[in-house]
Design a protein around this nucleic acid. Structure first.
Lengths: 258, 258
DNA sequence: GTAATAGTGTCTCTTAGACAATATTAG
DNA sequence: CTAATATTGTCTAAGAGACACTATTAC
């Protein structure tokens, strides 16, 4: 798939004549987060071409002339992972996608002026990603190796993707405080303990199981009992829940200080 | 100032070759909010040319090839209002500017593909704006006339600016809950009562003066006593404060439900 | 039995919300 | 004096944090 047209345009800076405008490329970059083995992980792809050839980067790509920003993000997500995300707000056991922020420093791409609209995706634990598109490989990387300690392998992410990842992680960490978004990291049916382990992994803390249970089951609309039980975590059978309709939690979950 | 070049480019959709890309225009739009006469107001400019000629719109303009997004927003703000905003996080009696969200629906501008990076500006009460640039006039409009009741004059804002304004107002309303950002609406020195009236105007509620006083003076780093007093609000002289260094409030100010 | 996880209950302390009372100015 | 705003204090109820205890499974 390679469409090529040739055209001549006038480049100008009149402020209100968009038929004459400076040329920008617009891309979407994806911060795709999940929880695996009690760790918050981000999806990375390895770049197959310069610049930053061989570096790990966030998945992403160019916005097409006829598609919206969320649409482009959703398409790139499907191309890279096979995930299907419905754009705004869905979290009920599905994939959550929201716009994060836009990065447009003039020199962020050494080749030309690229403005990238970063998106945040929260997904349940997935099989190891299939490499898609022109990324030579893909992996889930624990975010603490990419942020807190600096890059563990000594190589930072390509472009300003380290900064973008940091913003995405911080958004996820703060948003699960006052929304039911943590359920987006869970399978369709999950236990209170599994949800607690999501909070523990995202925040990097240990929570009291009894207070957590009291809190989440006492917040109206957060959890809906599905009727079933499971022992997949061992121990006494636990009730299964699905995500309730509530989106905002009031009062919020409190993130411990230390 | 009118730079015109002519060039020939290849438009293609190869995902990783930005020397071949679809053409986008990138703009910044500004949601400039202030509090006047106990009301939350937004800065609007009247469009002098089609499309939406004669409609009210948010101030904004094209991003120049050599400037960043916040830089462009800051420049447009200065051009439209004479305000000087230091980009991220400043709130101490100055103008606060932060990125809001990016709007890129393919048909949001009837002329061509325009991606707009909206920014939010919070400013103290200002004199009536001087019309700047090519806007034929400018005004402060109470946001409740533009949002809650629908456009009071029967004419919606140009483009998708009504939606952008709504997002900016909601951001401001939620952000003063858990940050000290409400001080950005105040002059350099202000009283507890003046700060309370900011909260009341932004949230559209009435707050108990005694509980509010206890809350804000008891939150470390929110307010710094400046030593002086004033009677400009009438009644007993009130202590003057400046914004403290704290940016996040924990626990937050609670917005009343009803 | 032990080990593991799930779930309930109890106590204390902080804090929001309601509201009484006093303080200090302008007029 | 009255009217207005500022400021301090008091009571109550909701909720978070600490933690004892019981329940139900796998082994």
């Amino acid at each position: 798939m390679f469409i090529v047209r040739e055209t001549t345009i006038i480049i100008a800076m009149s402020r209100y004549d968009p038929s004459a405008f400076p040329p920008f490329a617009v891309t979407v970059d994806l911060v795709v987060l999940t929880v695996r083995d009690h760790e918050l992980c981000a999806l990375l792809v390895r770049r197959g071409e310069p610049p930053f050839q061989g570096y790990w980067a966030l998945p992403g790509g160019f916005v097409r002339p006829d598609e919206g920003l969320a649409e482009a993000a959703s398409r790139e997500l499907a191309e890279e992972t096979g995930l299907r995300a419905s754009a705004p707000g869905q979290s009920a056991a599905g994939v959550h996608l929201e716009q994060l922020a836009t990065y447009g420093h003039p020199q962020r791409d050494p080749r030309m002026r690229v403005v990238s609209v970063a998106h945040l995706v929260l997904a349940p634990d997935l099989p190891t990603p299939r490499p898609g598109g022109d990324a030579s490989s893909a992996r889930w990387a624990p975010v603490h190796e990419l942020l807190d300690d600096g890059p563990a392998d000594g190589v930072p992410l390509a472009f300003d993707h380290g900064q973008i990842l940091g913003a995405g992680v911080e958004r996820a960490r703060s948003k699960i405080e006052y929304s039911s978004l943590a359920t987006a990291f869970c399978p369709p049916e999950f236990t209170v303990g599994e949800l607690r382990r999501v909070y523990e992994a995202v925040w990097g803390v240990v929570l009291d199981p009894r207070n957590f249970h009291r809190k989440v089951t006492g917040t109206p609309g957060f959890l809906l009992p599905s009727g079933g039980t499971t022992t997949r975590q061992g121990g006494r059978p636990a009730q299964l829940f699905t995500a309730g309709g509530a989106t905002v939690l009031n009062p919020p979950m409190l993130r411990p200080e230390a």
